[in-house]
Design a protein around this nucleic acid. Sequence first.
DNA 1: GCTTATTATGTCAAATCTGACATAAAATAA
DNA 2: TTATTTTATGTCAGATTTGACATAATAAGC
Lengths: 103, 103
Amino acid sequence: MEKKKRKRLDEKGWKVRSVSEFLGLSEDEERVVELRIALSDALKKQRLNAKLTQEGFARMLNSSQSRVAKMEAGDPSVTFDLLIRSLFRAGIDRRKLSKIIAA
Amino acid sequence: MEKKKRKRLDEKGWKVRSVSEFLGLSEDEERVVELRIALSDALKKQRLNAKLTQEGFARMLNSSQSRVAKMEAGDPSVTFDLLIRSLFRAGIDRRKLSKIIAA
DNA sequence: GCTTATTATGTCAAATCTGACATAAAATAA
DNA sequence: TTATTTTATGTCAGATTTGACATAATAAGC
């Protein structure tokens, strides 16, 4: 957030919180959420790069359109297992996965 | 496997297979198994480094000794979610996780 | 506008996971 | 050796996940 804006809000009595502060997440939970989002984004990029619809992508993953939508949305009902298996299936190898996580 | 040994076995009519060939794993499943092992090993290293027993480690993770044993053994009943959450809880950050996966 | 395609959201039964427990096996100490 | 500690393995009820489906919302084409 821009510094000036933060100052303005602060002066008005707003407490500026990060998403994690707002949701009351622990450090670990925060890391989990952020990592999930990183993998979600990577998965969506892979799909778009392959010019597939969620429907077509789902077939390739033996899953469903709705689940792909949830994966890409970082829905909490989606596990790392599903994301990682999907990334592998979508052609991401371990080295690439490593880079995604580092970023 | 050592080349000479492979040759000897081959001459005796043994077909030398990798673990994956033996189990009939697909490329993707193979990657999943190998990654699970990498994370398992890293988790065990963390525990030993902290000089904790599985029992003590389990308390720290809000889990149980038997589950920690399964985590370290790469048991298929252990998800990436559990492994990753445990690694985070054990002090591994995203950058370190990335390196573990790259290795 | 209207139609079609794509994506998002809610729900649920079946499948999978997990902490907990018992207990066996292995390691370590005494 | 025999205790004691630590780790491994099997099991299971309760919790979570997932593909599938329906359907709503949005975007794309015309």
